[in-house]
Write a protein that binds this DNA or RNA. Structure first.
Length: 791
DNA sequence: AGCACGCCGACT
DNA sequence: GTCGGCGTGCTC
């Protein structure tokens, strides 16, 4: 009787297919990765379970192919992990294979491997390295002997040389301008691509730019333009190898405040009970980190692993440092999505193979590490939008963390000074527990916040009111530091032609292009397209452009003129931190007092601790308030309270100035008093009134087609199908209507908004739309559940 | 993802 | 007449 198993293919066609376990194979367990034949080639697949012999809708007498070889001696993934993948697959309406493909690091999902046999043991005439095709041909005693070597750990898996070469990580060596000949088109394309998309593997570079990229990148390494990551000489995917230790020093002494102790008791109680979610609402500087760490300690003492997640790499990095000090000698795994494939692979395997309870510190992608017994997940700054991933696999870290914690009876801690309104509503209505930290630790107090009316500034070139300028100058003269936030990068958001009044627009998106002075380019902030500057006006051919409006680059320039001789200004935004190590450099330099003022976008609002900062100035407090989005007020409130929290964290009290053209707006009362509860009451009332989350489930369907495609008929049809099906399903559906950003990357865009009671019906409605699409090659449909923005 | 089939343009 | 371009289709 054939022993049949279901195997999920982790590359196209992603199907879950039935294969036979050949007699020489070891016993199978779900989660084991195996090589299987498919057509005339081979695939990596994950064994998901035995195929039940009856119930198969297969033609009578169907013959199943046999598996070729296992890729590990004990499974890398456990059944809980397969459940997680299955759950994500249902939510995404995708196959589990496709989900697993995005969760596994590249080296762990390829069938292009070579098996290396330990020759010292192989007394039979076996070759030293064997490819899957040769394994498939082996029979009888040879096959049996080889399987014994495999099971004894005398046969290793190695990724094929060509693939391995492409795993090397390419990163920029220096900021622009670069020393290349202007007509070295390919080199410039690689440099620009790395600048826009960050360090990446040669593999990704080849995919994005073409076959030539590998060769050119290698040449550029020789010229010192890029660096290629280390490639271990004999890099075996030693899937069964154990991890190395991470040793810290003596833990620092600390004393918990009464509030912290009370919160810790409550959290420990949840941990000892059935688990569940718990909101920690603590004002900025109230010592949430130490609370998390003590909670991690409690979790480890109970013999389970813990995860600490921050919204971005720089914050996770800081948490990692503090955690390493707190737990000397304890294994702490640091993980984020911007690591090289090799590092990700190693971390993934380490997490699966770790025997002791351990700690993971990282960003949202760390949630997909195969940690087997997860007792605690902490999402710090839980309101942060970075916890939602929109590209590739769309998910919200909060939902995934909740799924993992719930399945394993673990504790999910959501921490923030300005919680997501939905989270706070859940806490208020008793769905989840809540602890509050209302006071800062130590001597520091919350800063005083003031508004500065700049409505009279309209039309003038000055970005600051006299009061703001004076405050910044005074702070610097007193030897203190100031932070200036403007949530707009670049030099100026518009370039205006003095001769004809035209502004430079992106050809693909029909929006204004932002001038970046340092790069001598105009960039489209929506599609990333760039043009070199100076240029000639497309309409009149003139070359007299004047920059309109401010970005961080221009604010920095302005401040350098304003401040006394010798004062230094640093800039922190996505442009200044394109090269990975730059972010830490800038934060470090400012922390050491090497500059007096730090100018930046919202990046500077996130959790950084600078004791000498006594002034925070917000150049444009209104920015973001007018976005066409039900969360605009919430986002603005959170951002302003968070950035205000950067002031006065040392002994000196802090002061916060917010410039606004609209001092009468109701949001200011709550921001000035940093009164989250008051803000929440107003906001939740508004959402109840207009039927927004958390009182309804909101989804956005994005429809787009190429600008040169006549899509009116298709949209009309989709609109009719939508109206009809929505009525049947009890969903309120609006649209399709032109999106606020009506054109992006050369595509016309339309939005439909769904409001319903459960996600299931919303997915069904979307499925109907997809089915009704009359031209799937031209008209694209995308579903965004609980969208962050409707642009 | 691979690998084959199939149908058009430029070569020994 | 064949070689080879890559569009399309299938894989237990």
């Amino acid at each position: 009787m054939a022993d049949l198993w279901q195997v999920t293919l982790v590359s196209p066609p992603y199907h879950t297919l039935t294969y036979e376990r050949p007699p020489h194979f070891p016993q199978l367990v779900p989660g084991l990765r195996v090589i299987v034949p498919l057509g005339r080639s081979h695939r990596m697949g994950v064994v998901v379970g035995p195929a039940d012999k009856e119930g198969q809708d297969r033609p009578e007498g169907m013959v199943f192919k046999a598996m070729i070889w296992p890729l590990e001696t004990s499974p890398l993934l456990d059944s809980a992990y397969l459940d997680l993948a299955a759950n994500l697959a249902t939510r995404q309406m995708a196959s589990p294979g496709r989900i697993l493909e995005t969760l596994l690091p590249r080296g762990l999902r390829t069938a292009a491997v070579t098996f290396r046999v330990d020759r010292h043991v192989a007394d039979r005439p076996l070759p030293g390295s064997i490819r899957p095709a040769e394994l498939a041909r082996l029979t009888g005693a040879d096959r049996q002997a080889l399987m014994e070597l495999w099971l004894a750990g005398r046969m290793r898996v190695r990724i094929n040389a060509k693939r391995e070469e492409e795993e090397r990580f390419v990163s920029l060596v220096s900021d622009p301008p670069w020393a290349v000949r202007p007509n070295a088109k390919r080199q410039i394309r690689i440099l620009e691509h790395l600048l826009d998309n960050g360090p990446q593997s040669l593999f990704s570079l080849r995919h994005a730019l073409g076959e030539w990229a590998v060769e050119t990148a290698a040449k550029m390494e020789g010229a010192g333009l890029v660096s290629l990551g280390e490639l271990t000489a004999d890099r075996l995917a030693e899937v069964d190898a154990g991890p190395g230790p991470c040793v810290g020093r003596e833990p620092p002494a600390f004393v918990l405040t009464d509030e912290q102790r009370t919160a810790l008791e409550a959290l420990r109680a949840t941990m000892d009970g059935a688990g569940g979610a718990h909101l920690v609402h603590g004002v900025t500087g109230s010592g949430k980190t130490i609370l998390y760490l003590e909670l991690v300690r409690a979790c480890l003492e109970r013999g389970r692993s813990a995860m600490l997640l921050a919204p971005e790499v720089a914050l996770a990095y800081r948490v990692h440092r503090v955690a390493a000090e707190h737990f000397p000698g304890r294994r702490i795994l640091f993980y984020h999505g911007y690591q090289s494939p090799l590092k990700r692979e190693t971390a993934f395997v380490d997490a699966a193979r770790e025997g002791e309870p351990f700690v993971v510190v990282g960003t949202r992608s760390a949630l997909f590490l195969p940690v087997s017994d997860l007792g605690l997940v902490v999402l710090d700054e839980e309101h942060d939008e970075s916890f939602k991933q929109d590209e590739r696999l769309a998910y919200h870290a909060k939902e995934v963390a909740w799924f993992r914690a719930e399945r394993g009876g673990g504790l999910l801690v959501l921490g923030s000074a300005t919680p997501d309104v939905k989270t706070f509503h859940a806490a208020r209505s008793g769905t989840i527990a809540m602890s509050s930290l209302t006071r800062r630790v130590g001597e520091s107090v919350l800063p005083g916040v003031e508004l500065v009316d700049i409505s009279s500034l309209a039309g003038s070139a000055a970005p600051f009111a006299p009061a703001t300028e004076a405050a910044i100058r005074q702070t610097v003269e007193q030897g203190r530091q100031a932070i200036v936030m403007l949530n707009r990068r670049g030099y100026a958001p518009l370039m205006y032609c003095l001769d004809c009044g035209e502004t430079v627009r992106c050809s693909e998106c029909e929006v204004g292009m932002t001038y970046h002075k340092g790069r001598e380019r105009l960039l489209c902030h929506y599609c990333g397209q760039s043009r070199s500057y100076p240029l000639l006006c497309a309409r009149c051919g003139g070359g007299n452009f004047v920059p309109m409006g401010e970005g961080t680059e221009r604010i920095k320039e302005h401040l350098e003129e304003l401040l006394p001789e010798g004062a230094k200004v640093l800039r922190l935004d996505r442009d200044a931190t394109r090269r990975q190590e730059r972010l830490e450099d800038i934060l470090g330099a400012f922390g050491r007092g090497e500059a007096q003022v730090l100018v930046g976008t919202q990046m500077i609002s996130k959790g950084h601790h600078f004791p000498d900062v006594t002034l925070v100035a917000v150049a444009d407090g209104d920015l973001g308030l007018s976005l066409p989005d039900y969360r605009a007020t919430e986002r603005t409130f959170q951002l302003l309270v968070q950035v205000a929290g950067r002031a006065g964290r040392g002994l000196e009290p802090g002061r916060v100035l917010i410039q606004t053209r609209n001092p009468g707006h109701p949001i200011w009362r709550d921001v000035l008093s940093a009164d989250y509860a008051a803000f929440y009451e107003r906001e939740i009332g508004r959402r109840r009134l207009f039927g927004y989350p958390p009182f309804t489930r909101l989804a956005l369907v994005r429809i787009s087609h190429p600008a040169d495609f006549a899509g009116a008929a298709a949209l009309d049809l989709l609109g009719r199908v939508l109206a009809e099906r929505a009525r049947e399903l009890g969903i309120t559906a609006l649209g399709p209507a032109p999106a606020p950003l009506a054109m992006l990357r050369g595509r016309r865009r339309f939005n439909c908004l769904f409001k319903g009671d459960d996600w299931g019906r919303i997915r069904v409605l979307f499925a109907h739309l997809v089915q009704a699409n009359p031209c799937p090659t031209k008209v694209r449909l995308g579903l965004d559940l609980d969208p962050l923005t409707t642009l």
